[in-house]
Design a protein around this nucleic acid. Sequence first.
DNA 1: ACTCCCACTACAAACGGTTGCACGGGTTCA
DNA 2: TGAACCCGTGCAACCGTTTGTAGTGGGAGT
Lengths: 366, 366
Amino acid sequence: MPVTIHDVARRAQVSPSTVSRALSASHLVRVTTRERVLAAAQELGYQPNPAAQSLITGRTGNIGIIVPDLSNPFYTGVLRGVQARARSAGYAVFFADSEEDPAAEAALVRTMARQVDGVVICAPFSTDAQLRTLAELTTLTLLNRRLRGIPAALMDSAGAIRQVLEHLAALGHRRCAYLNGPQASWSNRERRRGMRASAAARDLSIVEFGPFEPNFDGGVAGADLAVASDVTAIIAYNDLMALGALSRLADRGIAVPGRMSVAGFDNLLYAAMCAPPLTTVAMPMEAGGRAAVDLLLAGVAHRHLGRSGPVTLKSVSSGHDGGTYRELSTHLIVRATTGTPSIVTSIPAGGADPRAAERPRKRETA
Amino acid sequence: MPVTIHDVARRAQVSPSTVSRALSASHLVRVTTRERVLAAAQELGYQPNPAAQSLITGRTGNIGIIVPDLSNPFYTGVLRGVQARARSAGYAVFFADSEEDPAAEAALVRTMARQVDGVVICAPFSTDAQLRTLAELTTLTLLNRRLRGIPAALMDSAGAIRQVLEHLAALGHRRCAYLNGPQASWSNRERRRGMRASAAARDLSIVEFGPFEPNFDGGVAGADLAVASDVTAIIAYNDLMALGALSRLADRGIAVPGRMSVAGFDNLLYAAMCAPPLTTVAMPMEAGGRAAVDLLLAGVAHRHLGRSGPVTLKSVSSGHDGGTYRELSTHLIVRATTGTPSIVTSIPAGGADPRAAERPRKRETA
DNA sequence: ACTCCCACTACAAACGGTTGCACGGGTTCA
DNA sequence: TGAACCCGTGCAACCGTTTGTAGTGGGAGT
């Protein structure tokens, strides 16, 4: 039923191999012939069979993307970037949600491996060893995780938290709470690392809480702990947690930013929409997805180059050693949840903080 | 480099065909032989080449999902459902975002068609004719769109809005605003249809505004129009718009639900998190995704059955006529943005509405 | 002991493309 | 005018798997 290259060949009065060449290595066939072939293909609505193509060429024209939790808008942003870039490069995208399970991740890579040219994987919870194993199955590119020998698109987590601390220090804060995300998460580790470096330099002391689930409820839980300590600001692992903290503070009648400043990371759409709009650090999610695809396709090209040329065993095994990272910059977005700390240790419950009214509310459309 | 069926055959001392049978039609091969083959495959880490398999069988083990806008959490919910169900059925998932462009949708289906067994498509903006054309390229299943001859998973939009109107009528509302989503959207048409039917029966009059973009900004715009009319409640096309309306009302100092009630659709995560929590109708996004995959796979099985058996041309061409729909129920979630309408036409600006304080705030975790 | 049968296995073709190689015919140069 | 050459095309093998068919062996029945 589907039209094959033979049908086109018959209609164009040439051999199948000429059709193949006319469609790919066009310079090997006479112009008039190629036009005849193209016309025939057009009329018949010929579409090459990708299975047959990949069987012989070894390339599939597909890539995979694996994320740990699609309900987190951070990853939908990444997915959008990945998909857009892949499409413009002529690649189709396999998608899978590992649900934060390293075993599932491994299984998914394994099933994808045979029908993709490479996989972009967001795997904050896998061990280094697990990832290295997976890297042997296919060309791999990481997102927000640095691992020697595997290319990665990274967002500047250390710089992100530095900007937050600078901002808070400039406002006069001296003691801040940090609500940890998942302990095993690479981003959380990076964030702590950056925090320690920056806090010391700015005479800020940090009180850590958690780890918490990186979602709304985790923020709710963290807020209470932070309030009980003597901090004037809460830095949450991500926006979802910050929103949870914000909500909890509102429920308890604690003025933001009057008695407590709050900041998050990611710059989700909702961070700008909620009241008061959240101060946060914009993470380049789509750009990260795009960069990851670029690195991946470079790796694919490299690997394929190595295969076709007359190479030594050594240069093949080294593969694309890909000590290539791409670090994307982040930037602070100051909205309405951060302000100067109050000197007064307690404020009449429910009393409106005058500063909250003074502060102009700014809205970003992200 | 990769291990093939021949490697396994050599190691197990059998022919490649026996290996193939041992791995699939296991009853055709002696038990001891099969065990030997399985052991060899295991030791070599054999993974069948899907390209070769699909080349001869015509099946790919993949399905596709196309959504119009991944940044809308509604579709990420659908995507989660699709992916989960597909995975448990042993299918891999191609994903693509059409960015609301029917032409892109067509192109995506066309490129996917050759390497999937079927496609789930959320295409609120394509014309019926366009969809029928695409249905000829591959097995198709729709989501939230009814089209004769193509199976679909549907969410009960009419019932959804009926529940909202019942709720508002019971509270005493008589005039409500409806903020239209995109006019061409099937869901919006369904919602209006259901609305007309239900409103008449309940002595409610509806004022319509829009169409608006189905996002936060659309809601902001709609809120002002609604306030200028003499309605006591705003029903938004979806939660994103409702949140926008809510934010705008707060900015203008209009008490919710004191002077204006607000309701949305979808029950996004943020609808429960924002203050005040939004009354909305839960749409079964993941269940919809799962149902769509079920229908799709049934269609795939049917089509393949027709192909393998000794069939007449007629029964093949009728294909899976799939007059099969699956309608999923929706349910209202009453939170804090709907209340009894105030009789007073104007309230001192900025004055707190006593009812707002009385009303207990309820939080749902979705 | 011979035949028949059945269970199991091997052979080979096919799926739809790609690509190395050879060949045919025209052009160019000696 | 003949040889060398080159461009354009066809032939055939191959990618890895499935599957129809043929063939082999052993066991059972008479």
